[in-house]
Deep mutational scan, measured.
Amino acid sequence: QKPVSAYALFFRDTQAAIKGQNPNATFGEVSKIVASMWDSLGEEQKQVYKRKTEAAKKEYLKALAAYR
């Protein structure tokens, strides 16, 4: 399975908490809140997710090379 983006990892980590705080929110509303949070996130915090994405990408490429 291809690795997901840094934003997708952040979304996955954040979505449940947002939904818990806003139980009646639609998926679209939750998405807007998470997107706003991502935009206001500091670069250092974004780097945490970007590093996770890079590590997953390297593992994916290694597994793909081994498969071929």
Results as ranks from 00 to 15, higher is better:
E44W: 03
V48D: 07
F27M: 12
I18N: 01
P23D: 00
E54W: 05
E59A: 09
E43C: 08
A35V: 01
T14F: 00
A6R: 01
N22E: 03
L61F: 07
F27A: 15
A55F: 07
Y67L: 11
W38F: 01
G28R: 14
E44M: 03
L64Q: 15
S5W: 03
W38K: 01
S5H: 01
Q45G: 08
F10P: 02
K57E: 13
L9V: 06
Q45L: 03
I33P: 00
T26F: 00
L41M: 14
E29V: 02
I33N: 05
A16P: 13
D13H: 06
M37I: 04
N24M: 10
E44T: 10
E54S: 07
A63F: 02
F27Q: 14
K46E: 00
Q47D: 13
F10G: 00
K2L: 04
L61Y: 10
A66W: 09
K19L: 08
F11Y: 05
V4A: 07
E59S: 08
F11S: 06
G42M: 02
T26D: 13
T14M: 13
A56L: 09
F27I: 10
Q45P: 02
L41R: 01
G28S: 12
L61E: 10
L9E: 15
Q47N: 14
Y49C: 14
A8R: 11
Y60N: 06
S31A: 09
K52M: 04
A8I: 03
Q1N: 15
Q15M: 10
K2C: 03
T14G: 01
Q21Y: 04
L41A: 06
K46Y: 02
E44G: 08
D13E: 14
A63W: 07
A17M: 08
R68P: 15
A6V: 02
A56I: 08
E29K: 02
V30Y: 01
K58D: 12
P23N: 06
N24W: 03
K19F: 08
V30H: 01
Q15L: 09
E59G: 06
R51W: 10
A17Y: 10
S40P: 00
F10T: 02
Y7S: 04
Q45S: 09
E29D: 07
K19I: 07
Y60A: 13
N24V: 02
R51T: 13
W38D: 01
I18P: 00
Y49H: 14
D13S: 03
E59V: 05
A35P: 01
E43D: 08
Q45I: 03
Q45A: 08
A55E: 13
S36F: 06
G28C: 11
Y7A: 03
I33K: 12
E29C: 02
P23K: 04
S31Y: 08
K57D: 13
P3I: 06
D13Q: 03
A17C: 05
S36W: 02
R68F: 05
E44R: 04
Q1E: 04
E43M: 06
Q1K: 15
K19R: 09
E29N: 02
F11N: 07
S5K: 08
K62P: 08
R51C: 10
L64R: 14
E59I: 02
A25T: 04
V4W: 05
V30G: 00
Y67F: 09
S40K: 14
I18S: 01
T53D: 11
R12K: 12
E29W: 08
K57G: 09
G20A: 14
R51N: 11
A17G: 07
A55M: 11
K46C: 01
G42Q: 08
R51L: 12
